[in-house]
């Protein structure tokens, strides 16, 4: 019974966080509501018995992505930038138009319907009872045996991203070197 309560509470958190996320106009607040939403998703995973996935969700999305987003928002500039952004958004065709909202909601409904039909079929097939074995050992084993190629390829991708980030962030060559202050 406890997992069901946690599941309902987490689902409510996802729903409320999602609604607040798109309805607020403040980007920083949006990030915080995104945090709430993602935390709810982690709660859903945990209540379904996938603890490793839940904690990975927290470590990747809350410890990484949300902090990265907050940094990115802070580095984008002040009020002038935002007003300029609004001007551009208003100029762009079909932004904030009535027909845009119509088309957007129709596409959203189709995607939602299709996905829910798919997951409904999936839920009927999959047994939802949790396994008693610790799931992270299975994940680790399959990563290093059956899915080794995919694992290595993604590690190459990440290495490339790391080197690329280092090259982009490399300071221009200047004559006098000053200590950086953060």
């Amino acid at each position: 019974m406890l997992p069901e309560i946690v599941l309902l509470f987490s689902a409510f958190m996802v729903f409320l966080g999602g609604i607040l996320l798109i309805s607020t106009k403040n980007l920083m607040h949006s990030c915080i509501f995104l945090l709430m939403c993602l935390f709810g998703v982690a709660g859903v995973y945990a209540s379904l018995g996938a603890e490793f996935l839940a904690v990975t969700q927290i470590i990747v999305y809350i410890g990484g992505i949300v902090i990265l987003m907050l940094f990115a928002v802070m580095l984008t500039g002040g009020k002038e930038f935002i007003s300029r952004l609004h001007k551009v958004l208003n100029l762009a065709p079909l932004m904030g138009d009535k027909s845009t909202y119509m088309k957007g909601s129709i596409v959203g409904l189709i995607i939602f319907g299709g996905l829910s039909a798919f997951f409904y079929q999936l839920l009927k097939v999959l047994p939802l009872k949790e396994q008693q074995v610790s799931d992270y050992k299975i994940i680790g084993h399959s990563l290093l045996t059956d899915n080794l190629l995919a694992f290595e390829l993604s590690s190459f991708l990440l290495l490339g991203a790391l080197i690329g980030a280092a090259i982009i962030a490399k300071p221009e060559k200047v004559s006098e070197s000053k200590p950086t202050d953060i």
Binding site: M28, E51, V55, I58, I62, I67, L70, Y136
Partner: peptide
């Protein structure tokens, strides 16, 4: 006694850094 104990501690304690960052910004 969850089977991902230490991993959970590492993950959830990142909220402290987020709180400090938000406090500085707000």
């Amino acid at each position: 006694k969850t089977n991902v104990g230490i991993y959970y501690v590492v993950a959830i304690s990142s909220l402290v850094g987020l709180g400090i960052f938000i406090a500085g910004y707000a």
